[in-house]
Nucleic acid binder design. Structure first.
Lengths: 163, 163
DNA sequence: AACATAAATGATATATTATAACATTACAAG
DNA sequence: CTTGTAATGTTATAATATATCATTTATGTT
């Protein structure tokens, strides 16, 4: 499956203890402001997603939780992940049934992703896209859009170069 | 779950033996042209999706197949559905883990959907959208998009009116 | 601080979705 | 007609996700 421990943001390498810490602080601050409980469990799950920096299935998260001695049954992972997704700290990649930490924690945005089918790296697009072609059809039919999922499958630069 | 037998295209009712027949003919013609085998099983699965005219899970399809006496194990349904999706006769709705017949069989298009979270009705957008905000990010990073998934969750007109 | 209430977590069980692997049949090309 | 390929049948199991109920932890109120 994915490229073991490539630790890439986007498709390039980078040092990243920093962005992890920043993201955790941001989540903490947000939860403080909104009276949400940023519990040790939820924090740990977010740390796991940030640490791995790629899309992780719920059971992969669960394994890492277990290693950390923090809960070991599926609902534990799913509940924490739901919390993170609900509040925008993480996103679910529907095509992969997997979860990634949000790469744009400060910006209000409709998530959009590029998923490499070779290495499974997931990159969150930088544009705060929210109005697509859909909006025309939507307003025509009276459909009220609440949330959009935009995922592009393809091949990333480094995988293309290898071939 | 979904609205039993609402049989709606988009969110409005319509007579629809016609569009079923048309879609089947179109698929048949396409398969002829491309040397694909439009087998009784594949035809039946497409008929099921067209008939129901909403997103059906693989196991729902399988139940209907079974009723029709045409195969009864999961791989049978999944294989036929894969074929239909691969050749554009149907689409997978990732958010629902479900499948719908393509509503725009003649037009080359990136599918885009609106999904009502109350009645699960799925409408395929009419615009042949294929270039979104993603394309900028994609070209910047050298990512080559092969396929996009665009799904909007929300509430359809009739469900909104009920409330 | 003591209590009531709500929120989160723990734990068990099970539902739902999907695929691997191998056997068999159908069908087309040489 | 036999050989290769694609499709289907069949069994088993993997991977993903949730329902339910018990317990603990946090929060707000007196």
């Amino acid at each position: 499956m994915a490229s073991e421990t490539s630790k890439s943001v986007g498709f390039e390498k980078h040092d990243h203890g920093l962005c992890l810490e920043k993201a955790i602080k941001a989540a903490e601050a947000y939860c403080d402001r909104c009276n949400l409980q940023f519990t040790p469990l939820r924090r740990k799950v977010l740390e796991i997603l940030l640490e791995e920096h790629r899309a992780l299935g719920a059971y992969a998260v669960l394994d890492l939780l277990r290693e950390a001695g923090l809960g070991s049954q599926p609902p534990v992972a799913y509940r924490a992940l739901s919390f993170l997704v609900e509040h925008g700290f993480a996103h679910k990649i529907e095509r992969l049934n997997a979860f990634v930490a949000c790469a744009l924690p400060d910006i209000l945005h409709s998530p959009a992703f590029m998923i490499c089918r070779k290495c499974d790296t997931v990159v969150e697009a930088q544009s705060p896209s929210s109005s697509f072609d859909l909006s025309a059809t939507a307003s025509a039919t009276g459909f009220e859009i609440e949330q959009t999922t935009l995922e592009a499958k393809g091949v990333c630069n480094s995988c293309a170069e290898m071939a």
